[in-house]
Design a protein around this nucleic acid. Structure first.
Lengths: 213, 213
DNA sequence: TCAAAAAAGTGGTCTGACCACTTTTTAACG
DNA sequence: CGTTAAAAAGTGGTCAGACCACTTTTTTGA
């Protein structure tokens, strides 16, 4: 029946055991795991085997290790995952374009969802962005987009977005220019009013200016 | 500048070196990699370190190892990845819903792109689906959705979709029911004619029926 | 010629050791 | 008594060697 279970894959069993241990001990995100030596004793396996499992989980971004400090359950899931996969699968310029497009897919969907949901588009946070724009004259581009994703409540979409945004480098993580200010205001205003199409139009206009940066 | 590079992460460097080696040696999918002992010598590191890197890549499904046989570049990407991630991250019902929603985000975007692109929406493949539906009376749901993603040409979006669809289990990987037939036909026809809204409407209708399965 | 046995190759695992770094404890000083 | 510096303990990082289980290749012998 269950081929995956009947397969040996001792190394995967350790991963599973680790998960059980985390659940049993009720280890929360950011908290410390038992040391490698303790784990190897408790699980009845060699330290090497424990390390192989831990290293795998680290590559997935599920745990963090600090030299001399210990091993910790990842607080913010840095899914280096996409990064690693991209290293193997996505190599050329075309792929970089794909990353940008895919990121925008999630952003646009967020705009759609928010625009169409009364309880989301009337959130105070959008007003706060307006105020910030008026007073300081500028705002961090990435912050706005992140807030869009957070607001939708889709945690998985948010996680994927984080990865894609990280891959994009600092092109997003910067303050808005004078030219962008008006566009962003239009986008936010349209969103608040539930004008999905207008909001998306402003977004696309915004992204085309980002493109040229 | 480049924080990620200046970070130590020796273990990640080995992963990178492995990638270079694969590229240099022009190792194709399914082919054999050098043995662990050879790798450890060529890379100038201990066998344990090589193994930690290999085990990580195995967890990602990028390589396969056969006891006594050797290590091979994965031919078909088995998405153990989703399985592992789901084990740690996706535990509650809310998360499962997120997976479904996120998958649909990519599917809907594909429909939009195809509907708005003359060269994509007039592709012969859509006619082939029509024919298949007429002759056999049914069609694999997953096949259609996959074709949508493939057609857009966004490989990253496709990759993400694959993983999400794999997590969804066999709810998609099945033949369409009689009820679905008409909806799918409507969706495809609307797409071919460039009626984005109608295509999306049919898609949403389709998904709501899938929901109840 | 071919099948069985032996050898070589390879991954799987464990042990022990040493290093580098961090955290905790202890000791010394003011 | 409190503060600080030194020592100790804890922890991850890496390596080397050994042995086992399994697969592949080579050799042997009928």
């Amino acid at each position: 029946m269950d081929k995956k279970t009947e397969q040996k894959k001792v190394f995967l069993e350790i991963v599973q055991q680790l998960r059980q241990l985390i659940k049993m001990e009720k280890i929360q995100a950011g908290e410390k795991l038992p040391s490698e030596r303790v784990l190897s004793e408790r699980l009845g396996v060699g330290r090497s085997s424990v390390r192989e499992a831990l290293r795998s989980l680290e590559l997935l971004g599920l745990i963090e290790t600090r030299h001399g400090g210990g091993t910790f359950l990842a607080s913010t899931h840095k899914h280096q995952l996409v990064e690693i996969l991209s290293m193997f699968i996505l190599e050329d310029e075309k792929s970089k374009k794909d990353v940008e497009l895919t990121r925008q897919i999630h952003e646009m969907e967020a705009i759609r969802v928010i625009s169409c949901t009364e309880t989301l588009r009337t959130l105070p946070v959008w007003d706060s962005f307006f105020v910030k724009l008026e007073i300081e004259g500028t705002i961090n581009c990435r912050d706005i987009l992140r807030e869009l994703l957070i607001t939708t409540g889709n945690r998985l979409s948010l996680k994927i977005w984080f990865q894609l945004a990280a891959y994009d480098g600092d092109r997003l993580n910067r303050n808005s220019t004078e030219d962008e200010k008006l566009i962003i205001q239009t986008m936010l205003k349209s969103m608040q009013l539930g004008y999905e199409k207008e909001a998306l139009k402003a977004y696309e206009q915004w992204m085309s200016t980002v493109q040229s940066i």
